[in-house]
Design a protein around this nucleic acid. Structure first.
Lengths: 205, 205, 205, 205
DNA sequence: AATGAATGAGACTTCATTCAT
DNA sequence: TATGAATGAAGTCTCATTCAT
């Protein structure tokens, strides 16, 4: 799907507003005003508000696919795992708005979850994780018996928890700016997840 | 705060609808209809839709406090940790609706996050986790250097991730009923979290 | 009609609120709250909000009758006229709230104007003025040909104009307090009206 | 400010209803129905009911400015005074509806009185009256010591009194039609005010 | 006699969408 | 292609009143 410049601007504005106020909490008027276009244009371009969300999702979803090229690396599997976690968290953090929307609107109601591309995305990412784990098992570095689904849920969930409790956690961590919080996630949080997942995969309690 | 039977019914209905459709996606008409009361009654009882959410939150929030009496147990700290994780997940799972609401509405906009009781709840739970970790460090069973904030985020986030991706994960796990999914979380997921957190606290990779 | 103490308090509160916010701008809840009674009590005591206004009117209307005993004075008619104007303005000024209500609600809609007691009041006052004028004509001090209706309208209208433009006139007259404004009306305004009406009645331009 | 034809119709309908039933006594539904437009259109055009009143006021207020060109006339000041009174009353009488609204809503509550244009209007009119009086004093035809504020209040108040007691006065004056009442005000009332004010300005009792 | 609980009606406003151009 | 105008539906909330006790 190709989007014109105007359409792209609308998508970006919508993405921002949806992430701040939720889908239901954002009106097409809000979007039109901030994108400096006519209200009618949203429907003209996207058909409806619902379809706008679909298009936004389709537009962004590709970027949430884990980069499977890391599977081709000859690096030690431990490094590949670290890299996967690090780059995934960094990417999610940089495209936070849409991810927030997905997390919320996928939980709520029918929206998005029905979408095939959403399912494909999830399956792809699980597959990448799964491949890494299997490789580690083959090299004898990872223990078997760990479900990629649980690993993925831990990685994703921990990150999202940091997003959704931003206000509270900033005060707990004595972080004052959004930039510092973002940096914290890309360093301390990444390290925590790397340690956590590696411990899980290597340590038989 | 004391609630009459009618008020409680309204709260329960609202809780259910908010968790399914979000706050903005639920109208007072919807609530009134499902609770079989007059629309005006919602405002009569709670003042406004916003205040209804506040009251619902206040009504439920107490139950999300971790039971600190486990700190008084003389059991090995490892068992206390297991028990904490198990009972917390089980409780969240049984009071899922409100938790879903909190997770979403706390992320979106100003709502709830501002609430003192929300902050108190979070701080209390962090304190309980912190106490357990410190005890483990004292007995030499846990490594030092692990931030309770990260532990808590991992536990909570993983659980929430299971909630918010229910539809997708059910299909991935070949689970057909909500009951089976719930049972999965209270067994497999709990064990996963227990293993994960214990690995983290005991194993220096 | 006899009113209990509670009823009287309600009437006084209603009078005050009606004069400040108008009849439609005042809710029975407002009245109940300020009078510290149950909402249902307004209807219980007065039947309806409309009837409350009726009762308030009936309760107060008697006091707006000009004191006809001044007609029995043997003073010069000029002094009687002065006294009538002075005491009428002073009385209206002291019972301002209800008069404001009457002025507004009588102009708006059907309310009050239909009331017999309102008509009787007006006729009574016109009669008193008329008697004074006639006496002046008989003594040769007043010119004939002046309609009491116009005299009354001038007196009443000028006073009400001062009421309804209070905010503006206070600033124009450099008056800062309500008390000073009230005093202005009972002195300067009274003198103006006395001069105006006497000029009219005695001077054929 | 420019208004479309539809907007003007709404304004006219609103003006009429507000004058009959008061602002609070008129619903946007009433206005929409009588103007034969959609209810939503009132908000679409004017933003809110309050802003509609503002716009109505702005739209009409200009017309209530006394024509200051009469100050340029070389006619005797007595004629200028007569002309001022006559044309002012005639104009108010022809634009009665809005004036009724102003009189009521300016007295009640905060509305309008706060408006700058209202204050400007009042100041302008006082200025015109003041100029005429000063000219009369200069020519030796008027006595000094008369406050234009009191003159204005008398003129305006007497007229408004006739408006607000229309029902009662019609019966007192044996006038059956609104047209006849209107004619009475433009003749007898005007003459009364001219005589009154001239007597006041020329006669030292 | 008095009142807390409850309610239908209607208030103003905003919504996403469509129409006519 | 693009948009200003318009609208029906629905939103939340307040109203005066009544009911059951």
């Amino acid at each position: 799907m190709e989007f014109s410049e105007k359409q792209l601007e609308i998508l970006h504005v919508a993405e921002n507003l949806f992430s701040k106020n939720g889908f239901d909490g954002t009106s097409v008027r809000d979007i039109a005003q901030e994108a400096q276009v006519n209200v009618a244009m949203i429907n003209y371009y996207f058909g409806s508000k619902d379809k706008l969300l679909d298009d936004l999702f389709t537009y962004r979803v590709e970027k949430f696919k884990m980069d499977e090229s890391i599977l081709n690396l000859t690096s030690p599997v431990m490094e590949i795992l670290d890299e996967m976690i690090s780059s995934y968290i960094k990417y999610m953090n940089s495209s936070l708005a849409i991810y927030q929307i997905i997390a919320i609107e996928a939980g709520v109601k029918r929206r998005l979850m029905l979408s095939d591309s959403y399912k494909n995305l999830k399956e792809h990412n699980l597959q990448v994780i799964s491949s890494i784990i299997h490789r580690g098992i083959e090299t004898g570095e990872f223990l078997s018996g760990n479900d990629p689904i649980l690993i993925h849920a831990t990685m994703m969930g921990t990150f999202m928890n940091f997003q959704m409790n931003k206000t509270f956690l900033k005060s707990q961590l004595n972080i004052t700016t959004d930039e510092a919080y973002s940096k914290y996630m890309e360093s301390t949080l990444v390290i925590h997840l790397q340690r956590t997942i590696k411990a899980l995969l290597t340590y038989a309690y």
